[in-house]
Write a protein that binds this DNA or RNA. Structure first.
Length: 812
RNA sequence: GCCCGGGUGGCGGAAUCGGCCAGACGCGGAGGGCUUAAACCCCUCUGGUCCUCGUGACCAUGUGGGUUCGAAUCCCACCCCGGGCACCA
């Protein structure tokens, strides 16, 4: 009697073996072709949740699969260990964020190991390690030198809940904080920015070179928001020498300009406002400035309240007509020039405003026949536009731009929705910004040899709205690196997205002490061949990491030719429960440990692979436990088959078909399933094949070849049980060190096929035929069938459609 | 409002190119075997309706049209669900 399948014992045994033998440690000089597989490094919030399990199941499967294909696979893991939750816990409990975070990392690591996922742990990176902080700060200083980091006073997003400023990307469309849900307010603060806009065009264009999900690329394109147009100056009537510069994407409609609108914050507002309008204008500006982003962006409320006349006029350079200058809250100072020419005929917002303020509307593009809408934004011949009349949109734009350039009052230009990345955070648990403020020399970079700048441990955590660093004299007081005079340190820390913008580079060479990483080693492993993570990072992390990679390549820190960090991206679906995302904050977590302790990691992994397409969301339902148990049952069947427990059963008949051919067909099917991320069908094929092997074994037929193939194909999916069974069947061998099985295409195709015979598209008979059957033979066989004769009812088919070898359709 | 996905049995899902009576595989359900009994395990059945109960007929992939010898798959219109963007001039 074979030994029972002791899941716990076997999984522990192999996890220890992989750890002790360092099976998945690789070096850059490995002769095998390199493959870099990476899962987004996690924020350590405690034991792994199902989202992690799903992510690392896919990642680990790829590591093992590529290894069996003969690659040297770089499989690193680390922790995005700076961030708010640890600091909030510190405020609540008084425990320093470091021990708190280290404890969470230990928990997470333990559950990752229990999943059986293998990594080269020597390369582990933690954002809060002093060495990692050193190089994050070093990179900041290089960006600062290059003019890609700068400081400016700016109206910023302040989250009262998190007590910090946020990046634009961290403010949700409804104006609330993506983390705390509090309404974000505007504050004027001096802050550090990264000049990501300098890379706007490259970030946009290089998307075309990436093998990424189309929807992620679309989201990034929209976020960058490139729009081509023109800028030009309008003279202000009664203010000699004062001009207003406007941005438009439709210079071809300039003859339809019936007013001009400035953003309420526009610097020219005080100068051009007339005395009799001053009170109204000031009241309006005051109202807008106190409004939250939500209120201002709301399209609710009467349009009449959304603007005010300045009392002054501007001159349209196209026809020298004077048009009134308004302020309106829908024009934003942060985009374009903060001023627009309003063309109500071709812009719906302008149309609505014009109606509300009784301003004229002139159509300058002929709408199509039967047009009943208001503003017409489509293409058509220009009208009411003098020398542009009759031209289509493209030609009219070119001619209008030419006019502006000739007169020297404007030019063709491009605008982006993308803003520079605000990286200052008024928090403690983050990477300190390595800058000193000297009364004499201003903001002075901390010299490289004084890095890392580390936060002190003896700080008090209080929800003051300022980093605890601010009130720590020992940290705050320093001397100017330039002149030695007393100076103060920058007390803000960096957005944690800075840490995650280069960790994948550090993984290639985490031992580097002279630089964040060695360029040649990075060139060997990067770009990441397969990156896997959640769709929630479609914009923020992925955009920032791309920016860092490009900037570091241009600075000569990273290899020059490394233009993109992640060649292929896969975004897995979310785990949902009761309609909402499964998450710690929603309190609906189903801990993986429960399954590790019972059915085992292999069964849970198999479930995640089998439940549906990897990109789709998973609904965690009442039935899920039963499905997971079903996966465990299947592994039990494989176990019994592979240990020879399944023997002849009285009266069992062997299944039809040749097992060798079926095995080759399985290899073909599963291999293809891996290649196109169709793990659910690959698992299904393995289950089906196992059922088939059972029938052979019960009929007393040999199944060893089939079982071995099955174990190899399942090795990346269920690594523990396949490793154990392989070792028992082939003493001294390791299943994951075997080559991926190959199939003979000649054997993978069936000898005979079932030919379907249709009459008028309805199946009337099925006939087993030789796989090489030709059309004439198919027709002959079809006509010979009594069932087909009955269906034809004596008629002669007027048409025969034959698709060898599987289908023939007789049309009567 | 705009841009992407998606709608298939009681449930998760399958069906690479328009072609093997659509529903693989699994869960759930029904029946049987093993067992003193139960669990485990093994086997069979399981979209709907109808009947003469069969190697039977008809219906069926959100709805309505269309193309085709043939449509879950392609085209048009509509409905519903999910996601992204949304005063960006």
């Amino acid at each position: 009697m074979a030994e029972a399948y002791d899941v716990q014992q076997i999984e522990r045994k192999w996890q220890a073996r992989w750890r002790e033998e360092g099976t998945y440690q690789v070096e850059a000089d490995d002769p095998r072709p390199p493959f870099y597989s990476l899962c987004m490094y996690p924020y350590p919030s405690g034991a792994a949740h199902q989202g992690h399990v799903r992510n690392y199941t896919f990642g680990d499967l790829i590591v093992r699969h590529r290894t069996m294909h003969g690659h040297a696979v770089l499989s690193p893991m680390g922790f995005d260990s700076f961030g708010l939750p640890a600091e909030n816990a510190a405020i609540k409990t008084g425990v320093h964020p470091r021990p708190f975070t280290d404890a969470r990392i230990a928990e997470l690591k333990e559950s990752i190991e229990r999943l059986g996922a293998v990594y080269d742990w020597r390369r582990e990176v933690r954002s809060h390690d002093p060495e990692y902080i050193r190089w994050t700060q070093w990179i900041f200083l290089r960006l600062l030198e290059a003019g890609l980091a700068y400081r400016k006073q700016a109206p910023v997003n302040w989250c009262p809940g998190c007590q910090t400023v946020l990046a634009n990307e961290q403010v949700l469309p409804d104006g609330t904080c993506e983390r705390s849900g509090d309404v974000v307010v505007k504050r004027d603060l001096e802050q550090w920015f990264f000049k990501i806009t300098a890379y706007a065009d490259q970030l946009l264009d290089d998307l075309d070179t990436l093998d990424w999900p189309e929807r992620v690329k679309v989201m990034q394109r929209n976020w960058i928001g490139r729009s081509e147009g023109a800028e030009f100056d309008l003279d202000v009537v009664g203010h000699d020498g004062t001009t207003i510069r406007v941005f438009t994407t439709r210079p071809d409609t300039s003859f339809g300009m019936t007013y001009v609108v400035l953003a309420p914050e526009h610097p020219l507002v005080p100068e051009i406002t007339t005395d009799d309008q001053r009170a109204a204008v000031e009241a309006f500006v005051a109202k807008v400035s106190t409004e939250s982003e939500v209120e201002r962006q709301s399209t609710e409320g009467p349009v009449e309240k959304r603007g005010v006349f300045t009392g002054t006029y501007a001159v349209n350079p196209f026809d020298d007509e004077q048009v009134p200058i308004y302020l309106a809250d829908y024009v934003l100072m942060g985009y374009g020039t903060g001023a627009i020419m309003a063309v109500p005929g071709e812009d719906q917002r302008d149309w609505d405003f014009a109606k509300a303020y009784d301003l004229p509307i002139i159509r300058t593009v002929q709408p199509p026949e039967g047009w009943e809408g208001e503003a017409y934004t489509g293409d058509g011949p220009a009208i009411n536009s003098r020398w542009l009349d009759g031209l289509d949109k493209e030609a009219a734009i070119a001619k209008a731009v030419g006019f502006l350039e000739e007169r020297g009052i404007g030019r063709q230009t491009v605008n982006y929705r993308l803003r520079d990345w605000l990286l200052s955070r008024q928090r403690f648990w983050g990477c300190p910004i390595p800058v000193v403020y000297c009364p004499e020399h201003g903001a002075v970079p901390v010299p490289d040899d004084q890095l890392p700048v580390l936060a002190p441990d003896d700080v008090e955590f209080r929800p003051t709205g300022e980093s605890p660093l601010r009130s720590h004299e020992g940290f705050l007081r320093t001397t100017c690196p330039t002149c030695g005079a007393p100076a103060t340190r920058e007390t803000d820390t960096m957005d944690t997205f800075v840490d995650s913008s280069w960790y994948f580079l550090r993984f290639a060479d985490p031992w580097s002490t002279m630089a964040p990483f060695d360029r040649d080693v990075v060139a060997h492993w990067l770009p990441v061949d397969q990156y896997i993570g959640g769709i929630e990072h479609a914009i923020l992390h992925l955009m920032y990491a791309r920016f860092f990679t490009k900037a570091l390549a241009d600075l000569g820190v990273a290899p020059k030719e490394l233009r993109e960090p992640f060649a292929r991206l896969f975004t897995q679906g979310m785990i949902r429960m009761g309609g909402s995302k499964m998450s710690k904050s929603k309190g609906n977590l189903v801990a993986p440990a429960k399954y590790f302790d019972t059915v085992g990691a292999d069964a849970l992994r198999l479930f995640h692979l089998f439940v549906g397409p990897p990109a789709d969301d998973v609904d965690w339902s009442e039935q899920t436990d039963e499905v997971i148990e079903g996966c465990g049952r299947f592994l039990g069947r494989v176990w019994r088959l592979a240990t020879g427990e399944v023997g002849p059963v009285e009266g069992a008949k062997p299944p039809v078909g040749d097992l060798e051919r079926d095995t080759h067909r399985l290899i073909a099917k599963v291999t293809e399933g891996y290649d196109r991320w169709s793990y659910n069908t690959a698992v299904a094929a393995c289950m089906e094949f196992t059922n088939l092997l059972y029938k052979h074994a019960q009929a007393g037929a040999p199944v060893d070849g089939g079982v071995d193939a099955l174990l190899l194909l399942m090795a990346p999916m269920a690594p523990h049980v396949t490793a154990e069974l392989w070792e028992r069947r082939h003493p001294g061998q390791h299943v994951h060190a075997q080559a991926w099985p190959t199939f003979d295409p000649a054997l993978a195709t069936a000898l005979t096929e079932t030919m379907v015979v249709q009459v008028n598209g309805k199946v009337r008979d099925r006939i087993d035929v030789d796989a090489g059957v030709d059309e004439a033979e198919m027709e002959r066989l079809a006509l010979a069938s009594p069932k087909v004769q009955a269906a034809l009812d004596g008629a002669t088919p007027r048409k025969v459609v034959a698709r060898p070898p599987r289908l023939v359709n007789l049309v009567r």
